[in-house]
Structure formats: structure tokens, C-alpha cells
Computed example of a mutant assay.
Amino acid sequence: MSVQVVSGDSEFVLDISGWTAVATLRRKIIVPYTSVENVQAGNFKLPWTAVRRTGIAALGYKAGHFVMDGEQYFLSYHDADKVVILDLKGHEFDKMVLESADPEQLANTISKRSSTHSMK
């Protein structure tokens, strides 16, 4: 996969590689756990009204910066049924949709770490 989630103590990092890095004009996105308002595993449907800023939207693969209903999204997925959806506050993106081999586990990991950091 072109985007990997690397968990740290106070943040997680999206390491972006390959053509996704070229198309999105990014190699890393840092997300502090304190920015995470909500996280859930599920599915996602890209509305036809979405505006692509940078990235790819072809043949089932979606990656990059999109604007939907006035909100900034970062997307990275092939399989829209195996994603983690994050609601963020105080970050350049309002939402992130990331594919994972085990979306439930990734959502639980981010949720636990976000809860721990919001209590401090």
C-alpha cells in the first residue's frame, strides 16, 4: 500500500510513497492524537460532488486531498469497505479516510491513544 500509518507516542504519521506521493505532493502527514475527535472502521462512498485538489480518483483507487461539503478530506483507499474514518479538529484536514488490512484494529489503536492524550 502507498500509505502506511506509523503510531508514535503523541501522534501518528502517514508515510506516503510511490505514485501516491507524487500525485498528492506529500510524503508525510503528521496527526497529533489530540486532533482526533472520532474514529470508526467502516465503509466510505466518495460523492460525485467531491472536488479533487491533489491526488488520484480513478479505477477504484482514491488518494489525495479532496473537498466535500466545505470540509477538507485526505483519502487513501482501494477498498472502500475496509477503511478507517477519522474526524479531526484543529488539523489541516477535517476528515481522513484510510484503508487498512484490519480496520477495526487500527481504529481501536488510534481511539485508545487519542483517549489517553485527551485526558492529560
Rank of each mutant, 00 (worst) to 15 (best):
M1E: 06
M1S: 14
V3D: 03
Q4Y: 14
Q4E: 11
E11Y: 06
F12K: 02
V13A: 05
V13S: 03
L14E: 01
L14P: 03
I16S: 02
W19D: 07
T20R: 08
A21H: 01
V22G: 02
A23D: 09
A23V: 01
R26L: 05
R27L: 09
K28N: 13
I29L: 12
I29Q: 09
I29V: 15
I30K: 07
I30A: 15
Y33D: 02
Y33S: 09
T34E: 07
T34K: 10
S35Y: 00
V36M: 10
E37F: 01
N38W: 15
V39N: 08
A41R: 09
F44Q: 08
K45H: 15
P47E: 00
P47A: 13
P47D: 05
W48I: 13
W48G: 15
T49R: 15
A50V: 03
V51T: 12
G55S: 07
G55H: 00
G55D: 06
G55Y: 03
I56Y: 00
A58W: 12
L59T: 12
L59Q: 14
Y61N: 04
K62V: 13
A63Y: 00
A63T: 04
G64K: 04
V67F: 13
V67L: 10
M68Y: 12
E71P: 06
E71S: 15
Q72N: 14
Q72F: 07
Y73I: 04
F74Q: 02
L75P: 01
S76V: 03
Y77T: 03
D81K: 15
K82G: 03
K82R: 15
V84N: 01
I85Y: 08
L86Y: 15
D87N: 03
L88M: 07
G90R: 00
G90A: 11
G90Q: 01
H91C: 06
E92G: 09
F93N: 09
F93V: 05
K95Y: 14
K95E: 01
M96K: 06
E99G: 15
A101M: 11
A101N: 09
D102F: 11
D102L: 08
P103W: 06
E104V: 10
E104L: 12
E104M: 05
E104P: 03
Q105L: 13
I110Q: 02
I110N: 04
I110E: 04
S111M: 06
K112Y: 01
K112G: 01
K112C: 03
R113M: 08
S114E: 10
S115E: 14
T116V: 02
M119D: 07
M119E: 08
K120V: 11
